[in-house]
Amino acid sequence: MRLSSRAAVLVVAALLLSATAITSAAAEDDNPYLPVAGGNFRSALPADGRPLHVPGFLLQRHPVTNAEFLAFLAGHPEWRRDAVPVVLADRGYLSHWLGPLEPGAASAAQPVTRISWFAAEAYCEAQQARLPRWYEWEFAAAASGTTRDARGDAAWRQQVLDWYSRPGGGRLQPVGGGPANYYGLHDLHGLVWEWVQDFNSLLPADADPEKFCGSGAQNLQQKDNYAVLMRIAMLGSLHGADTGHSLGFRCARDAGGRP
């Protein structure tokens, strides 16, 4: 009798485990990690002025949604807005949700925003992933629908820039609404700002020399690539606990394995 009840517990536990596995697999199916072949790249923020090599990596198809983040909170209650310490997420964290586990008017398919860097990083870690590094994000975001590096195309640049000049504060569109780029990725431009893992490495170009050591000079290149320069300036000005109405994220993995 005792044995069989223990067996029943084991069966239930196994079912729960597989249910969890299915849920996280489902989350991955909804927002899969797509391969981005690496290559040499002229960054707008080169460390030494030379082209750099970006190794291949995987990036999620679209920004993480409210539904995906809600599923994460169920398993990680320490990141609920009523539990997280203010040093890891400011008071704006998920403040647009109706309750700690109720997105309310924030729809399932909208990108989740008002997320701190610490919370975004924790979400990705729970997926055996990480936030993309700046060079990875910039590399992926240089692609148009047809070419890997469309940054020389003035018409494409203008199209990207148009989004940045739109006033903020409007209702966010659902993810995947914009066209897919060369890699099949959506919404790198035109929907939300996105956290990168090394946001606190994008040293401001006008940094006070007394505050910095090391030999690398910060020289922003491609002065006509405003969209990317604005992103660098915005990310560089943030603190890890900051949140914003149009600041979201997506996760990445190394091409070879995880994360």
Binding site: A47, D48, R50, L52, V87, W117, F118, D198, F199, N200, S201, L202, L203, A207, K211, F212, C213, G214, S215, G216, Q218, G236, H239, G240
Partner: peptide, 19 residues
């Protein structure tokens, strides 16, 4: 990120960082 320190590895080794 917690402290507000900025740093980045340099291609030739070493780091740029804020004090």
């Amino acid at each position: 990120a917690l402290l507000g320190v900025q740093y980045r590895p340099l291609p030739e080794g070493g780091y740029d960082h804020s004090l």
